[in-house]
């Protein structure tokens, strides 16, 4: 399916910390961009040498601010194109395409109280969520961990707008955010985690262990974490063609580069659009969409994040 996109240009670039840049995107054809719900992100499409570089970034501006969007990008040490390109090559005035706002990290409707846990650049989705809760007059709190005040993105914005709700944890001051604070929340609280994989899993596991209902635990991976141990593998399609997936490529990318019209949307293993049937082979599931039973069945997989455990897979596109 061809997705409808919005053409925008880079209106300004601001350095928030030595590692994080904020980009302001303004519409070209429309006078206004669509408003969005708290927790929304966009996909950015940048024409690169080997096709489009596509990445998902949370919108950090206010949900009803529609003259421009803002995203904040941290330069990642082992960037495979995305953040490196944004940091080193993107200039003011550049054109790009973005998706309409999508929300895979919506606020709970039934929560009595919302608690956000952010590590590093994981703060980004929470800015619009807190703005929305403020407007709804619902209570919330933010626990935000960073290496130091200097490396803490949006520090002054948060101090200015959410001082009463926020606790900062700076590891250079030996003030570490511990998952023990999960014990302090009242029944009916919903918790939201965003940050590195290890941070999310530590808080998720502890919340589950403490007896938080699964439906009260929310989390978002803001990027696909590329394991250094990825292996290349072969995929055969039921239509006959064979495709090689290299170690630094996703199955979805390999399908698209080979001209196969494979479905996809979020590219982070969340929405399920890219699900395909697996006829043969074992799968390393890296998504957060399929149920445990579905994963163990080895009969379906999400091409955007999951890989082969065996050397070869046979898959069927619907």
């Amino acid at each position: 399916m061809k997705e409808h996109t919005i053409p925008v240009f880079i209106k300004s670039i601001e350095k928030l910390t030595p590692q994080v840049k904020q980009f302001t995107l303004s519409p070209i054809n429309m006078t206004k961009l669509p408003p969005f719900s708290g927790g929304s992100h966009i996909i950015t499409y940048i024409a690169g040498e080997n096709g489009f570089i596509t990445r998902a970034y949370s919108l950090t501006n206010l949900p009803d601010q529609t003259d421009s969007y803002q995203i904040a990008i941290r330069l990642s040490e082992n960037s495979n194109g995305g953040s490196k390109y944004w940091h080193e090559s993107i200039k003011m005035g550049d054109f790009l395409k973005i998706s309409y706002p999508k929300n895979h990290f919506p606020l709970s409707f039934k929560a009595k109280h919302h608690v956000f846990y952010a590590a590093g650049i994981g703060i980004t989705p929470f800015l619009s969520m807190m703005a929305e809760l403020r407007e709804r007059k619902t209570t919330f709190e933010l626990h935000y961990a960073s290496k130091s005040e200097d490396l803490c993105s949006f520090y002054s914005l948060i101090k200015e707008n959410f001082a009463d709700e926020t606790t900062f944890y700076f590891s250079n001051r030996h003030n570490k955010l511990s998952n023990e604070t999960l014990l302090d929340h009242r029944i009916g609280t919903h918790v939201y985690f965003c940050g590195p994989e290890s941070f999310i899993s530590s808080f998720r596991n502890e919340a589950e262990r403490l007896g938080y209902p699964k439906s009260s635990i929310h989390f978002e991976h803001f990027a696909v974490s590329f394991s250094k141990n990825n292996k290349a593998f072969q995929v055969k399609l039921t239509t006959g063609s064979s495709i090689s997936v290299s170690k630094d490529q996703t199955l979805l990318e390999a399908l698209l580069i080979n001209g196969i019209n494979a479905p996809y949307s979020c590219r982070v293993g969340r929405c399920g659009t890219c699900e395909v049937k697996v006829i043969e082979g074992e799968i390393e599931h890296n998504d957060t969409f399929l149920t445990e039973d579905q994963k163990n069945g080895h009969e379906c997989m999400l091409t955007c994040v999951s890989r082969a455990k065996s050397e070869k897979l046979v898959i069927q596109l619907n």
Binding site: I6, F36, S265
Partner: peptide
């Protein structure tokens, strides 16, 4: 239901 939950703005 899953199809509807995946419905996206602009599409």
């Amino acid at each position: 239901l899953n199809f509807l939950l995946r419905l996206e703005a602009g599409n």
